[in-house]
Amino acid sequence: MKADLVRQWRLLDLQKLDTRLDQLAHKERQLPVTAQLEQATARRAALAEEVVLAGIAVQDSERAVTKADAAVQLVRDRAARDKQRLESGAGSAKDLQGLQHELETLARRQAELEDAELEVMENAEALKADLATKQTAEADAEAEVAQLSVRREQEVAEIASEREQVQRDRANVAPGIGAELLGLYEKIREQQGGVGAAALSQKRCGGCGLELGSADLARIRAAAEDEVVRCEECRRILIRTAESGL
């Protein structure tokens, strides 16, 4: 393939721009803030689930408190009725004695139920405190997610802005290369991991980094100025410059 030196040199400018575009794409994929955001989002989801479960536990404990309170009140009401009957003196001595015995039994039962109620209430308060702690942690996680989301948007926007500028520069450089040479460059670039053209510098290929042998150097030295030469090792287009060492 033939192409004047000016068009071949432009390939180096194009390659520099394409390399920068690849770097920007890699940078966007590997933004540290993206990993941080994913971790924070996962923490928020886990905390949200904990809050739901803690809320259910609080609801269960509140029902237990209501049930315990109802049981205590039932005994109190029964004891109040018995006391009223006892104080009225209505009934036989045996009946009054039975009421006295029942009041003593009810008093013991009330004490037991009140102790149980106190324990249930303490447990309910502990569960409420745990729920409040988890809700605070969830709110903190939500704030962190929001903050990281803003940071990521800003960093992505900065990358996008630079990418647009590089793409504009590329659009100005590419047309001056010529369709045939540009097509070869694009094909090689796709095959060789993003690098389609490299400078021959100090007898080394700027693409694969290998030093060319004497036979390859002689071949390139003998090639016409407008001849497009390629590295025998990596097959990239080699651009001859004043620093090629030929």
Rank of each mutant, 00 (worst) to 15 (best):
Q167G: 08
A80Q: 10
Y185P: 04
L246Y: 02
A218Y: 10
L74S: 15
V6E: 15
E87D: 15
G213N: 05
D130N: 14
A224K: 13
S161Y: 11
A215T: 12
I188A: 05
E162F: 01
L131G: 00
S92T: 09
A222D: 06
K16P: 06
L184A: 05
R78I: 13
G193M: 08
E232V: 12
L96I: 15
L24K: 04
L200R: 02
R78Y: 15
Q154L: 15
D18C: 14
A146E: 15
R236C: 15
Q15W: 06
K2N: 10
R170D: 12
L127S: 14
L12A: 04
R20P: 08
L103C: 03
A218D: 11
L181Y: 11
N172D: 13
Y185W: 10
G209A: 03
Q147G: 07
T133R: 03
E225F: 05
L86G: 06
E119Y: 12
R151E: 05
R63W: 09
I177Q: 02
R109P: 08
L17V: 04
L210C: 11
R78T: 13
D140M: 04
K67D: 06
A143G: 10
V156W: 10
E102I: 07
D60N: 15
G55V: 04
K27D: 05
R219L: 02
A157Y: 02
Q167A: 13
